[in-house]
């Protein structure tokens, strides 16, 4: 389903959910939960947003039922650790590639996805100072390296 323009701020988190439905349903679930919570704050009044959010809620309820035996879903504290570990794994993979001078699309995507998953961590509460810094760095790096590669420049 298409994300309404009013909810553009969560479109990449929703896309990340779709990309992880098979690969890691726990990540897919919490990305949807973030999109849901944030989407409700952005716009839950216009008909297109209400329709989108209602469908998103249906998906979340269904996923929670299907994954009820998974502790990362039934206990949010376990889910918090799962998302944080996954986000940092992507971050350190990309950081290692960066420090080794290996610049490619996959590392850019890893930096960017880690920043999105650090956003998702906000559903569990305020981000730690360390995670705030990781998020800022990952987002900046993904944009910087993307622009360098696009312009044929070597990132510094």
């Amino acid at each position: 389903m298409a994300v309404p323009p009013q909810l553009k701020a969560v479109q990449h988190h929703y896309k990340t959910a779709l990309e992880h439905d098979e690969r890691d349903p726990v990540v897919a679930y919490y990305c949807r939960l973030y999109a849901m919570q944030t989407g409700m704050k952005l716009d839950s009044k216009t008909p297109e947003c209400r329709k989108f959010l209602m469908k998103l809620m249906d998906q979340l309820e269904l996923m929670k039922k299907e994954l009820s035996t998974n502790e990362s879903i039934s206990q949010e504290i376990v889910g918090n650790a799962h998302i944080e570990n996954y986000a940092l794994k992507l971050f350190f993979y990309a950081d290692n590639e960066d420090r080794s001078g290996r610049f490619h699309k996959n590392m850019i995507k890893s930096f960017y996805t880690s920043s999105l998953l650090l956003d998702v961590l906000c559903v569990f509460g305020e981000l730690s100072e360390e995670n705030l810094q990781h998020r800022k760095y990952a987002r900046w790096k993904s944009t910087y390296i993307h622009n360098c590669l696009k312009n044929g420049e070597t990132p510094q």
């Binding site: 939960l33 849901m36 919570q37 409700m40 839950s44 009044k45 209400r50 959010l53 209602m54 809620m57 979340l60 309820e61 929670k64 949010e76």
Partner: peptide, 27 residues
Amino acid sequence: TGTLASSVASAEQDELSQRLAKLRDQI
């Protein structure tokens, strides 16, 4: 009509908030 549409929107908003709280075991 505007008032009716607004009432429907509010009711659906409440429904979403309740379902979200239930999903997160907050009620």
